[in-house]
C-alpha cells in the first residue's frame, strides 16, 4: 500500500510538477529529455546485463539502427512518426538477430564482438548512401505529431513522450523479472550449467533478452531522431550512446530497474551543468572516473548502496 502511494506521488511529480516548474526553461527541459533518452538506453543495457548476464559495448549499433529505420520510414515512405518509432525498435531487434552468433561466445568475447558489430553498422550507414544519405546525413526529419491535444513536438510534449516510453520499458522489465523466465534467468546467473541441466534453454533466453534490449534501444534511438530532426552516422552510432548508458547503469546499479534511469539523470545532468562548464573539452573523463570508481568501490551501484544506508538508518532509529 505504502509502495503504491510512493509510485503514485512519483508519477504525479514526474508528469505534473516537472513540466509545470521547469517547462518554461527550454534548456533545462532539453537536458532532462536527453538524460531520459540516455536513461532509456541504460535501462535496456542493464536488462541485458542483469537478466541476460551479458555486457555489451555495442548498444550504439541498436540506437543508430532504430534511429535510421524510423527516419527512413517517415521521410521516404511517409509513415506516421509514432508507428515508425515502433518499427525502429523492430529494426534494431532484427539487427540484434544478426549479432546472435556472438551469443555462444564467453563474456568478454561477446562484449567485444558486439563492439565490432557497432562499427560495422556505422560503416554500413555511411556507405549505403542511397538509403541513409551517407556521411552527409538526413536533414529535417519530421518531428512528433499532436496526440490527444498535446503537441508532442514541444519540449513538454517530448518530455512526456520519452518519460512514457521509459516508464513502459521499466514496467516491461519488471514484468519479465517477476515472470518464470526472470526466475530462470536469475538462476542462470548463479550457475548456467546447473540451470541448463534442469532443462532451461539458457541460450534462447539470452537471445530473447538481447532482442528485447535491442528493441528498447531502437525505440529510444528513433525518439531521438525525431526529436532533434537530424541524423548522421557519426552521431547516430557515436560511442557516447554506449559510454553514457553504461556509466549511468553502473552508477545507478545495473541490477535494479530504476538505478539506470536515476543514474542517467544524475550523471548526465551533473556532467552537463557542472563538468562541461569546468572543462569544455574532455569532460567525458568524468564518466571514466565514475566507471572505474564504481567498479572498485561499489560494484552494485548507487541505488543498492543508498538502500543499505537507509536500512542502517532505519535500524538505528528502531534501536
Amino acid at each position: 500500500m505504502k509502495h503504491r502511494m510512493v509510485v503514485l506521488v512519483a508519477l504525479v511529480l514526474a508528469y505534473g510538477a516537472v513540466p509545470l516548474l521547469l517547462g518554461s526553461m527550454d534548456y533545462v527541459m532539453s537536458l532532462i529529455i536527453a538524460a531520459l533518452t540516455i536513461g532509456g538506453v541504460a535501462l535496456a543495457w542493464a536488462l541485458l546485463g542483469n537478466l541476460g548476464g551479458l555486457v555489451s559495448f555495442g548498444h550504439a549499433a541498436f540506437f543508430g539502427v532504430g534511429a535510421y529505420t524510423s527516419a527512413i520510414l517517415v521521410v521516404d515512405h511517409h509513415w506516421p512518426v509514432l508507428l515508425a518509432m515502433v518499427a525502429g525498435g523492430v529494426g534494431a531487434a532484427v539487427a540484434s538477430v544478426a549479432t546472435m552468433p556472438a551469443l555462444r561466445l564467453r563474456g568478454p568475447y561477446f562484449a567485444l564482438a558486439i563492439l565490432a558489430y557497432g562499427h560495422i553498422f556505422r560503416i554500413l550507414a555511411v556507405e549505403a548512401t542511397s538509403l541513409t544519405g551517407g556521411a552527409a546525413g538526413m536533414l529535417s526529419i519530421p518531428g512528433f505529431p499532436t496526440l490527444l491535444g498535446i503537441n508532442l513536438a514541444s519540449k513538454t510534449g517530448a518530455y512526456a513522450l520519452i518519460l512514457t516510453i521509459v516508464l513502459l520499458f521499466a514496467w516491461l522489465y519488471g514484468l519479465i523479472r517477476r515472470s518464470t523466465y526472470g526466475l530462470a534467468l536469475r538462476a542462470m546467473h548463479d550457475s548456467e550449467l546447473a540451470t541448463r541441466v534442469v532443462g532451461v534453454p539458457s541460450t534462447h533466453l539470452k537471445a530473447a533478452m538481447l532482442v528485447i534490449s535491442a528493441f528498447m534501444t531502437g525505440v529510444v534511438g528513433a525518439f531521438n531522431a525525431h526529436q532533434i530532426n537530424f541524423l548522421d552516422p557519426e552521431y547516430a552510432f557515436a560511442s557516447s550512446w554506449t559510454v553514457l548508458p553504461i556509466a549511468a547503469a553502473i552508477f545507478g546499479g545495473y541490477r535494479t530497474v530504476w538505478g539506470p534511469v536515476l543514474g542517467a539523470l544524475v550523471v548526465f545532468l551533473v556532467d552537463q551543468l557542472v563538468f562541461k562548464e569546468l572543462m569544455p573539452s574532455g569532460h567525458q573523463l568524468v564518466f571514466g572516473v565514475l566507471l572505474g570508481g564504481m567498479v572498485i568501490l561499489g560494484p552494485h551501484g548507487l541505488l543498492p548502496l543508498l538502500g543499505r544506508w537507509s536500512k542502517k538508518e532505519a535500524s538505528h532509529a528502531g534501536a
Binding site: 555486457v55 563474456g107 559510454v243 553504461i246 571514466g288 572516473v289 565514475l290 566507471l291 572505474g292 572498485i296
Partner: peptide, 11 residues
C-alpha cells in the same frame, strides 16, 4: 572490462 573501459576513457 568495465574498469579498463573507464581507464581508457580517462586517458
Amino acid at each position: 572490462l568495465i574498469l579498463t573501459f573507464g581507464i581508457a576513457i580517462v586517458l
